Amino acid sequence: MQYTAGVRRTASVLAAAAAAAALMTGCTPSGDAGAAGEPSQSVQSPVPGATAGGSGAGGTGSAKPAASVSPTVSGGKAKPCTSDDVKVTEARQAAVRPPGTGTGAAIVAVANVSKSTCTLQGFPTVAGAGNGSPDKNVPLTTAHSGSATLVSLAPGARAWTKLTFVNVQGEADGYCESGATPASFPTLVVGVPGAGAHQTALDDGVLALCDNKATVTAYAATKPS
């Protein structure tokens, strides 16, 4: 019958359409297969300068803490003495001094009064303190005797210098061989290289000298005579 044949053709067309639809359901455009059923994944661009395991900007690793570094002075050596580290602890006439009736020569000691070792090196400066006031200093012209070496001072240790003056001659007020007028000062102002100037008095009298000159030795660990 024509009716039956038409039904069969219609059924065949419907079946073919259904099969085509089924095939289309399992396909997606190229490169996106499975995208509908899987979560999306973001990719982070590498941060310039970041290293694996580092915690730079955008990094996810944990950074190792920086090592603690304690500052050292001069490669671990003792620091130079400062004005707060040292103090004049002795100033007396030297046993060996030029002949005359003035002071002649003086031995001066500076001690490390701090709680740590420090170093000093060099020659002292010398001035007479006019009227006992360091603000009225009369600087002496100094000549250096010998060479300077580094002196390491432990707490309480001393360094020494010897000051030799142009001595006053004669009795009473005396006189200077140069014809200058003798000078006298109740106190001295002694400089320590890098550690300031320190005022001190001789333990036996005042400083009396000629020509405002002195010959000085460098600070040393050995007490001069």
Rank of each mutant, 00 (worst) to 15 (best):
M1C: 13
Y3N: 14
T4K: 13
T4M: 11
G6P: 11
V7C: 02
V7L: 15
R9L: 14
A11C: 13
S12A: 15
S12H: 11
V13M: 15
A15Y: 06
A16G: 15
A20R: 06
A20V: 11
M24W: 08
G26F: 12
G26S: 14
C27A: 14
C27V: 15
C27H: 10
T28V: 12
S30N: 11
A33F: 07
G34N: 11
A35W: 02
G37F: 10
S42L: 15
P46V: 12
P48Y: 10
A50V: 13
A52D: 15
G54I: 01
S55G: 15
T60R: 09
S62V: 11
A66V: 11
A67T: 13
A67W: 05
A67N: 04
S70G: 06
T72G: 12
V73K: 04
V73Q: 06
S74T: 08
G75M: 08
K77M: 14
C81W: 10
S83N: 06
V86G: 03
T89N: 03
T89S: 04
A91V: 07
A94R: 04
A94N: 03
A94T: 08
A95Q: 12
V96I: 13
G104C: 05
A106I: 07
V113N: 07
S116E: 14
C118P: 05
T119F: 07
T119R: 15
G122F: 08
F123E: 08
P124K: 03
P124L: 02
P124R: 05
V126W: 11
V126R: 07
A129C: 12
A129N: 15
N131S: 05
S133H: 03
S133Q: 12
S133C: 09
K136M: 11
N137W: 00
P139K: 04
L140A: 07
T142I: 01
A143C: 00
A143P: 08
H144Y: 09
S145G: 10
G146R: 03
S152T: 12
L153M: 13
P155E: 12
P155G: 05
G156L: 04
A157L: 05
T161I: 10
T161G: 04
V166W: 02
N167R: 01
A172Y: 02
G174T: 01
Y175G: 10
S178W: 07
F185R: 10
F185H: 02
F185L: 00
P186F: 05
V189D: 07
V190C: 06
G191E: 00
P193D: 12
G194C: 13
T200Y: 03
T200C: 09
T200K: 07
D203C: 10
G205Q: 02
V216M: 03
A218V: 05
A218R: 09
Y219H: 05
A220W: 10
P224Y: 02
